[in-house]
Nucleic acid binder design. Structure first.
Length: 584
RNA sequence: CGGGAUGUAGCGCAGUUUGGUAGCGCACCCGCUUUGGGAGCGGGGGGUCGGGGGUUCGAAUCCCUCCAUCCCGACCA
């Protein structure tokens, strides 16, 4: 491809609406253009990268026996009504009406369609297992699209689905996908972690996410030096040993006027009820937080959560735990309706389904039997000290809703946790029989009776990968593509106007192309070398060949985009040298 | 949905406070010069100043209103 022919226009300035590096660079270098919020056009350069990523994904999916097919993006609503997702997906679902007023949707993901397709064609256990996939444009009407192609409303995803007669088959399909994903992401060339994910309300069992490690990521995950990794929503807290409280002091109520917050409480306790051993700290207090759960049927249920006072309730972790219910704030009106709750002084003695409030009370796992707390006495301006779990109060159960902090111990004992950010690039999980049940996907088993098929669902963000790779591989001058996805193998720059330069360049291009390489040839005759070098660095092809002033000595230059290393090569050896470089 | 900001040429921006002929840089076109790090000089094309309404002799500028976009948060396989 010649630069004089390529449909591209590089920009000197960052676009004003771009924030993250990948967005700025992909627009500046002429890979994509924004059409509407969260909706992008793939220009020729961008499409070449996208196609390369698709090819890698296809190869690895085919290698585990996946069969590619393609469903429409425009779908009828009925299958999604059958699984309740027409409602559950909420405003994120792109809904459209046809001319007769029939409801339709732009597919956000295709579990229903794949399930129905298998139901349509198969009816015997002998037909299984099946592994089917598609690479398709998906639509989600995100409330706030951002970061360019990293989070669009239209995006390309590879989604595959496994269909098995039994759990062993599902496990095998899950493992096969896991290994395929490792190969895919290794080939795409960015750093990633595999984290335990929460399968949430989907009802599945095993679930893991592949997160690209990136400070611009929207997902927080934890990892330990010993190899534990999990999405922050899925982190579990190691439960401490119970403590024998036989000799502990009895609980005592003390006056703590004007202490509705943990901070003010600690201050007053240190001033007027000092401990013998050390000052009071927030972690000595038990904070009881009230929220309102909204169940899918609209029922509202108050819930009390007890956490150590030095920790906040993490709303995402809480929502994950209570799904499919949603979490709403506990309002002044709710307090008014529960007069036994004294705001700012709520204590465990009124919490619990069998206590005065009748409100379900769940505790952080750290609050084991024998731990001693300073906490609300359910009277304005009073707290209770030495309140001992297991002796003075019980809860209705445990909940993992407290925030996770760097330094917390990993649940498997592999060391302290570190928090980091990631971009979700792949998600594999065992769906089980939820969709097959709802849509009636059953086959006859060996005994001639109907058995519900068990399914897995596995996704890869294909268009997102373009952005992720740029996030992980760029410098001040531009993009640095890994060879596996670079739009071209070689970027050849003619730095000058002498006819012999162009003649030499033409020969190198012809030789490389006949050897099977793709070459971006900057043949612009009136553009200065500086501009061509800047463009080459911006566009990011990993090998840059410069034919310039040294051509009179029969020398061309081969530059490595990533390291910046350059070396002179004899024109006669150029093709062989470049081939060696590109093919590694 | 809440908070903040911004809408002026393809892109990046000034001009708005204090109303008076629509500007700069990049990009684009023509000519000459230039060719190893985003060239120089000269000439040129391109704008319903986000939309609508109002005030005024006169509005990019003041007022009202609507819309759009971006950022933070909420939300999000």
């Amino acid at each position: 491809m010649r630069m004089t022919q390529l449909f591209v226009q590089t920009l000197r300035d960052d676009p004003a609406d771009a924030e993250v590096p990948s967005h700025k660079l992909l627009v500046r270098a002429g890979y994509v253009r924004r059409v509407a919020p969260g909706i992008y056009t793939w220009l020729p350069l961008g499409l070449r990268v996208l196609n390369k990523i698709e090819t890698i994904v296809r190869e690895e999916m085919d290698a585990i026996g996946g069969q590619e097919m393609r469903f429409p993006a425009l779908l009828p609503k009925e299958p999604y009504e059958a699984t309740d997702r027409w409602e559950e997906y909420g405003p994120n679902l792109f809904r459209v009406k046809d001319r007769r007023g029939a409801d339709m949707l732009l597919g956000p993901t295709h579990e229903e369609m794949f399930t129905l397709a298998v139901k349509d064609l198969y009816s015997s256990y002998k037909d299984l297992p099946a592994r089917l996939y598609q690479i398709q444009t998906k639509y989600r009407d995100e409330a706030r699209p951002r970061a360019g192609i990293l989070r669009g409303r239209e995006f390309i995803m590879k989604d595959s689905y496994s269909f098995d007669i039994d759990d062993a088959g599902l496990d095998a399909a899950y493992q096969a996908h896991r290994e395929a994903y490792v190969r895919i992401f290794d080939r795409l060339g960015f750093e990633y972690v595999i984290v335990k994910a929460d399968s949430g309300a989907m009802g599945g069992s095993a679930s893991e996410e592949f997160l690209a490690v990136s400070p611009t990521g929207e997902d927080t995950f934890v990892r330990s030096a010993g190899g534990y990794a999990a999405n922050v929503e899925a982190v579990t807290t190691p439960v401490p040993e119970a403590i024998n409280f036989a000799t502990f002091d009895a609980a005592v109520v003390v006056d703590t006027p004007g202490t509705p917050t943990i901070e003010s409480l600690v201050e007053v306790l240190n001033a007027s009820h000092a401990r013998d051993d050390r000052p009071w700290e927030a972690k000595d207090t038990l904070k009881n937080v009230l929220v309102m759960l909204v169940h899918p049927d609209g029922r509202r249920e108050p819930l009390a959560i007890g956490v150590p006072g030095d920790r906040e309730v993490d709303e995402k972790r809480l929502e994950t735990q209570v799904a499919p219910a949603e979490v709403d704030a506990f309002t002044e009106a709710d307090f008014a309706a529960n007069p036994v709750l004294v705001k700012g002084y709520i204590g465990p003695e009124v919490l619990g389904e069998s206590r005065a409030s009748g409100i379900r009370y769940l505790l952080d796992p750290r609050v084991v039997s024998g731990t001693v707390w300073a906490t609300g006495a359910n009277v304005q301006g009073k707290h209770v000290l030495n309140l001992t779990a297991g002796r003075d109060f019980e809860a209705d159960g445990l909940i993992e809703a407290a925030e996770v902090r760097a330094g917390d111990p990993a649940p498997d004992g592999s060391g302290p946790l570190e928090l980091a950010r990631g971009i979700e690039m792949g998600h594999i999980f065992q769906l089980g029989r939820k969709y097959a049940d709802r849509l009636g996907l059953q086959v006859l088993n060996e005994n001639g009776s109907l058995t519900t098929v068990t399914m897995g669902s596995y996704g890869v963000g294909v268009s997102r990968a373009v952005g992720v790779i740029v996030e992980s591989s760029h410098d001040d001058a531009g993009i640095v593509w890994p060879r596996s996805v670079s739009p071209f193998d070689v970027h050849l720059v003619v730095a000058g106007k002498a006819p012999e330069m162009f003649e030499a360049a033409e020969r190198i291009v012809a030789d490389l192309e006949s050897a099977g390489l793709s070459v971006l040839f900057d043949d612009r005759p009136k553009v200065s070398p500086g501009v061509k070098f800047k463009d080459a660095e911006l566009i990011g092809v990993p090998t840059i060949v410069v034919v310039g002033k040294n051509i009179s000595d029969g020398i061309v230059e081969v530059k490595d985009r990533k390291s910046g290393d350059r070396r002179d090569v004899a024109l006669s050896d150029a093709t062989a040298e470049i081939l060696g470089e590109v093919r590694g």
